[in-house]
Simulated assay, not measured.
Amino acid sequence: MTASADVQEAVDKLAVSLGHPVLVEDARHRPLWWSAQGEVDGTRLRTIMQREVSSAAAAVVVRLGLPRAQGPVRVPAVPEAEMLPRWCVPLRAGRDLLGYLWVLNGDELVTEADLPRIVACADLAAMSLAWSRSQDDHDRRRAALLARLEAGPDDDAARELIALEQLDPSATVVVQASSAPGGWKLRGGMSAHVNPPAAAGATSGRPVPVGDLHLAVTRATATLQVLRAGAALSRPSWDALGAWHLIVAAPPDLSVADIHPGADVLARQPKPDLMITARAMLDHGGDITRTAAALHIHRTTLYYRLDRIEVLTGVSLRSGPGRGDLHVALRLAAYRAAAR
């Protein structure tokens, strides 16, 4: 791989050694690397300052056959296109045109004797562009395979991804909810990480085979939804959901009211205070002191709300039957409300 900084250094050195400005652009005439310019013509100025070329200058490039040239070409002055004399070296990877290296030569003091240095710089730029193109193709192919694996089981996509990334067939993967360094970007800002350390603590929980990436994504998504529902987990991971696993696994046709109708009654109240209080009271095991502290309310206010909740739902949150069912129903309601 040839780094961009290496090409820039080579361009600067070439310009100094020639005493003439150098520009490297891609095949669409967008500037990539350039030296200090000094006196320039209209075409060079427009290329660097406006990142475009005039139609007249583009026509000159085609008329002189530069896209097909296999080596350096001396380009004469073309006043109607605002072009001073210059040297052009097309940048290629095999038969593919990657761009051009230009040496502005208004005084025509750059001669064929200088071409070896110019060609050496052009070759370095071509290597960098070829690697970049190859990496872009690689990244696009990987992204397409990841999209297929996110959508569901796909043995062919798994085999292709393992081959593309030169992984061991037994490689495993986890998903982090927030895109983390070193991972592959996934939808929703998540990232996939291959063969994670044992103590990685991923959002999706324990590693799964690469072919089960969809499962890791589903688990990470559910974990995030549980957290949005207000769950107090020991860590933000599928492995820490505990009883929330039952909420996540609840079938769609199971309604909140099927578990306890009181949850629906609380949800229909004009203000959410009673539902929030009921959740907090049940989450804290019926402890008045801890619940009041968590809600930042006076105990008298809490007692008033608890009485109202008992009237509406028929459940005493301090003791008595129905508390467990109402708790599960409230969690299920919160989980479904947190869906995106």
Rank of each mutant, 00 (worst) to 15 (best):
A337V: 13
A200I: 11
D283I: 09
A77I: 07
A329Y: 09
L186V: 08
L186P: 04
A130Y: 05
S178R: 14
L101M: 07
Q50S: 11
V24Q: 01
P196K: 03
A3F: 01
D154N: 12
V24G: 08
T218G: 13
G42R: 04
M83G: 04
H296E: 12
E160C: 00
W131D: 10
A250K: 12
L146K: 00
R235N: 05
W244V: 03
R117E: 10
S4R: 13
I247Q: 05
Q50L: 13
P31Q: 02
A192N: 06
E39W: 08
L149A: 06
T223K: 06
P196I: 00
A27T: 04
A36Y: 02
L149C: 08
H296T: 14
A263Y: 08
L254Y: 05
P252F: 13
P153V: 05
S55G: 12
S237T: 15
V53P: 01
I259K: 06
A77K: 10
Q166V: 10
L306A: 09
V103K: 03
V22R: 10
D239K: 13
V328H: 13
T300K: 15
A339R: 15
R117C: 09
A192P: 00
E80F: 10
G183I: 01
H284M: 07
V61I: 15
A249P: 07
S132D: 14
L164K: 07
G324Y: 13
E52R: 15
T218E: 11
A143Q: 12
A334F: 13
S178I: 12
V328C: 12
P85L: 06
L146T: 00
W33K: 02
T47D: 03
A69V: 09
A250M: 15
R290Y: 03
P31N: 02
L164N: 06
L241Q: 00
R279H: 07
A58N: 09
Y303P: 10
H138Y: 15
D26F: 04
R140W: 04
P90Y: 04
N195T: 07
G201W: 01
R331I: 04
Q70M: 10
R336Q: 07
R187E: 08
V210R: 02
D6M: 13
R74N: 05
G189W: 09
G320C: 13
G99T: 05
W33I: 02
A15D: 00
A202V: 01
H298P: 08
L326V: 14
A180D: 02
E160I: 01
G242N: 07
R340H: 15
A147L: 09
A157N: 01
T277M: 09
S178L: 14
Q8H: 06
D12C: 10
G320K: 07
D239A: 12
R28C: 04
